[in-house]
């Protein structure tokens, strides 16, 4: 008499992961188009706001210092340096799925893919601005020998859900005596 309930219990426990996966799949198939529509409508605006924010921070920092603290030269022209140390800043930045779609269509036609250029340039500007802010926060007067690296977070051929690049800027902070 007690057998059928136990069989059902064991079966239901075995099926539970698959049931959860099915629920997740159904939710995803409903939620993803909604999120994609949201991205279509607002991701361009979000990118523009990000660029504006970075630019305004850069301008206000430049005005408060009176110059741009970053240089790519080795700094040999100044001899009154009293203290130095490495300083860095990184940012992981990705295009939205709508921008990826535009980029793919643009790729068929060929020519310059302006949307990806805009996204990567926004990320790079943000990384450089963070390097300036880090340098000021650590008490450095200037950053010499600045290098900028860009690396892909989603290498070719990998099964990746995230499409993004990491922009990493570093240099040597110096203090003038």
């Amino acid at each position: 008499m007690a057998d059928p309930p136990i069989v059902i219990l064991v079966l239901s426990v075995c099926m539970l992961p698959f049931l959860l996966l099915a629920i997740f799949g159904i939710l995803w198939s409903i939620a993803y188009p909604a999120m994609l529509i949201y991205a279509v409508l607002f991701s361009g605006q979000k990118l523009n706001e990000q660029i504006e924010d970075t630019t305004s921070r850069e301008i206000s920092l430049r005005e408060s210092l009176g110059r741009d603290p970053l240089t790519t030269v080795d700094g040999g022209y100044r001899t009154n340096i009293t203290d130095c140390g490495v300083v860095w800043a990184g940012v992981v930045f990705g295009p939205s799925h709508w921008h990826l779609l535009i980029g793919k269509i643009n790729n068929l036609i060929g020519g310059s893919i302006d949307i990806f250029q805009k996204v990567v340039a926004a990320g790079r500007a943000e990384a450089m601005q963070r390097l300036r802010e880090n340098a000021v926060a650590n008490g450095w007067d200037d950053v010499i020998n600045v290098r900028i690296d860009t690396s892909d977070m989603a290498p070719q051929g990998s099964q990746s859900t995230v499409k993004a690049v990491e922009v990493f800027a570093y240099g040597t902070g110096v203090k003038y005596g």
Binding site: M35, V92, G94, P95, S96, V119, T161
Partner: peptide, 9 residues
């Protein structure tokens, strides 16, 4: 999910 909207992760 955040990547759908783009921007910094």
């Amino acid at each position: 999910l955040r990547n759908i909207m783009g921007g910094e992760l």
